[in-house]
Amino acid sequence: MLNRKKRRIPEGAPFTDEEFDVVCSGCKSVHKRSELLKTGYICPDCGRYVRVPARDRIRMIADSGSFYELDRGITSVDFLDFPGYGEKLEKAKKQTGERSAVVTGVMRVLGIPCAVFAMDSRFVMASMGSAVGEKITRLFEYAEEMRLPVFGVTCSGGARMQEGAVSLMQMAKCSGAVRRHSDAGLLYVALLTDPTTGGMTASIAMEGDITLAEPHALVGFAGRRVVEQTTGTALPDDFQTSEFLLDHGFVDAVVVRSDLRDTLGRILRLHVGGGD
């Protein structure tokens, strides 16, 4: 399922073979990106799912060479002069090479065209600010116009507090775009990955026609610590995991990474020609 062959990538292409270190969110061990691409971002040390950078996520799902990026130029800015945000953004941009916490575009999966967005947890915890809201809104608008399904990979710390209530409004803005896309009879498949929380859970993560989740991903609205403080009780280990959500009826399926491309392809195929 992976592009193991080293491909020559033209300048400005969505994917590069640049080497960087990725930390396993489970055992904290550090791995080379090239090494993780081979394992599908499964930690060679502890076997847990490592958080996948947005571009690599798309690369792992899209048919080879089929991804075309949209709105790459949209950039997060510190418009409220919020303490530390400017530096945080500069650091995130430098570390990731991204301009916002989401990558959007169109791709093919098993030959079927599909719009896609993937959030990048390395960029200010993939929190949802204006740039993310605008890119996701534009993607759904584009998909509606082109009559494409949308596949969205969510992970997020929630709304981006450094953008004040403007970031909160992105939840309504994106929901509006999802709604219009849905009213046009088009399919939206969401994949919830570790961690999907707060405003992301309370908007686009939970608005899919079909909601998939990765094994053991943290998915919830309120933070675990906040819930423990509020209720004064210890929570079970599986609280707010994908499996917990499956048990409680909030996701359709928990899908392992090695099956994801096939599962998505099958879902997309089942909707081809439908919806009109």
């Binding site: 309370a202 939970m206 209720t231 009780t233 609280f239 409680h248």
Partner: peptide
């Protein structure tokens, strides 16, 4: 929205969404 285990179990995020 209320932050509690029962709220989470019944899909607080999904309800808002």
């Amino acid at each position: 929205a209320f932050c509690g285990a029962d709220g989470e179990e019944r899909g607080q995020g999904q309800a808002i969404a």
